[in-house]
Design a binder for these strands. Structure first.
Length: 271
DNA sequence: AAGGATTCCTGTTGGC
DNA sequence: TGCCAACAGGAATCCT
């Protein structure tokens, strides 16, 4: 499941193949994704030079002109692969970006939770414009979280997974960061001290940076831009470890459901 | 208005 | 072993 580190790795992986190159055409093999891939993508982008490839939250932005271009999300099973020599199309290959030099970027997404869209102004696009700060930026601070959580009864785990609060903290790393910070995921966001938020902010940054350094953790279906799977490169302390011993206190890890998502935590270490 | 519930989809997993 | 139901998950959107 691509989380922020996987998206970062993917964006970095495809960047050298795209930057300052020109798009020859875009082939849409199957437009059926979370939102239908626009029919006229190829017309809009044919002959356009790519001026930047970057990440915002879990969106990959392929810029052709200042602040406009393609918006790609990998959903939970999406991947981008660089194709340099002939390779048969796979079942869930939805879109191909074909470059002037015949390099192909293939978008594959079995579960179709992702998207490939275009935008004339990223900063005004509804998917992008209301996003919270980047977790690895200096804007993401304990003070900010404390401010945003004022009077909130919402569980802190759901709070930090809300992209309007902070982007890129997915289900796996939310559990991991809360464990690292020693915070009970059920605790109301509004009742957490500034000091605890400081610990949490550090934990989120650390967990994400670790994963990026490891090339991205994943469960099953992530394939990085080189086409190599990036399985489980990082050790997970609580996620998926129901009934296993806590690595700190040896008591069993619990699994609960919050916001229809599994949360794993240690009731002894996280209060 | 806030926050919980639903929704999209298919590959994998667990139970019988 | 084989079949099938349950499950997982990002995040917009709907609903209360």
């Amino acid at each position: 499941m691509p989380e922020l580190p996987e998206v970062e790795t993917t964006a970095n992986g495809i960047k050298p193949w795209l930057l300052n190159k020109t798009l020859k055409k875009i082939k849409v093999h199957n437009p059926s994704l979370r939102w239908r891939v626009p029919e006229n993508l190829s017309d809009n982008f044919k002959g356009e030079k790519i001026t930047n490839v970057c990440r915002r939250g879990k969106y990959i932005l392929i810029e052709t002109q200042k602040n406009s271009g393609l918006i790609i999300h990998l959903g939970m099973s999406g991947s981008l692969t660089v194709i340099t020599k002939e390779k048969p199309l796979l079942k869930h290959d939805h879109v191909e970006l074909i470059m002037q030099d015949d390099t192909i970027i293939r978008y594959n997404d079995p579960r179709r939770f992702g998207c490939v869209l275009d935008s004339e102004d990223f900063s005004k696009h509804p998917l992008i414009s209301n996003l919270g700060p980047e977790p690895l930026s200096d804007d993401f601070t304990a003070k900010y979280l404390k401010y945003k959580s004022q009077n909130k009864s919402q569980a802190v785990k759901n709070f930090i997974m809300d992209g309007h609060i902070v982007v890129g903290v997915g289900n796996i790393y939310a559990s991991e960061a809360l464990f690292m910070a020693g915070i009970n995921p059920k605790k109301a966001a509004g009742k957490i001290s500034l000091q605890k938020y400081s610990t949490l902010v550090d934990a989120i940054k650390k967990v994400l940076l670790n994963a990026i350094a490891a090339g991205g953790t994943t469960l099953k279906d992530f394939v990085n831009a080189d086409g190599k799977p990036g399985y489980f490169s990082q050790q997970l302390n609580v996620y998926g470890r129901k009934d296993k011993n806590c690595r700190h206190c040896n008591n069993p890890i619990q699994q609960i459901i919050q916001g229809q998502r599994s949360t794993f935590y240690c009731p002894k270490c996280q209060r």
